[in-house]
């Protein structure tokens, strides 16, 4: 169990790992900051290997073998990871838990929320009551935020049309 938890804690670094393409020309920098040294210029469409994200930057390895940081929003990831081939493993795994059958069987008709099920759904009053029972008060939420050392910030919405 502890090992499983440790593995999950590692996942953030792995989450966006894998081959990716740069959507427009950009600099690859030594550190994840605009004022850091530019190591190389990556052309639009350049292939890189994404390794980890820090803030708005992703550490990548270029085809030339150089490592550095590029803007996260400029990367589009490609297939190659476990979640990128066909049915996502997670969907299958959850279905196994739900149905006790193999994931393979459910790929033709995944259970849960699809358009048809939504269209045919009947209201479920008992679940609505449960939903209400789980609600958190503003005070409880503020205490929860404090426990996570979350600090509220004053941030303006973007102006319309911008």
């Amino acid at each position: 169990m502890r090992a499983a938890l440790a593995l999950f804690l590692l996942l953030p670094g792995l989450a966006l790992a894998g081959p990716a393409t740069v959507v427009r020309q950009t600099e690859m920098r030594r550190e994840p900051a605009f004022d850091s040294v530019a190591l190389a210029r990556l052309a639009q469409g350049a292939k890189v290997e994404a390794m980890e994200r820090r803030g708005g930057w992703t550490r990548v390895k270029s085809e030339a073998g150089e490592e550095g940081w590029v803007r996260m929003l400029l990367l589009r990831h490609e297939g190659g990871g476990a979640a990128k081939q066909g049915e996502s493993g997670v969907v299958a795994a959850i279905n196994v838990a739900r149905t006790g059958t193999s994931g393979r069987q459910v790929t033709t008709g995944v259970r849960g929320l699809d358009a048809e099920q939504l269209a045919n759904a009947k209201p479920n009053a008992a679940e609505l009551k449960k939903l209400q029972g789980y609600a958190a008060s503003r005070d409880a939420a503020a205490r929860f935020a404090g426990a996570g050392e979350l600090q509220a910030q004053s941030v303006a919405y973007p102006k319309e049309g911008e």
């Binding site: 989450a15 966006l16 894998g18 994200r53 803030g55 708005g56 996260m72 929003l73 990367l75 589009r76 990831h77 490609e78 297939g79 990871g81 979640a83 990128k84 081939q85 066909g86 049915e87 996502s88 997670v90 969907v91 790929t107 995944v110 929320l113 699809d114 358009a115 939504l118």
Partner: peptide, 22 residues
């Protein structure tokens, strides 16, 4: 960057995946 990170995760998945269809 929490939301962009989720979008990037989704973008990396196979759009044919039935779990993503809707």
């Amino acid at each position: 960057y929490g939301l962009p990170a989720v979008l990037q995760t989704l973008q990396a998945m196979n759009p044919e995946d039935s779990g993503l269809a809707l």
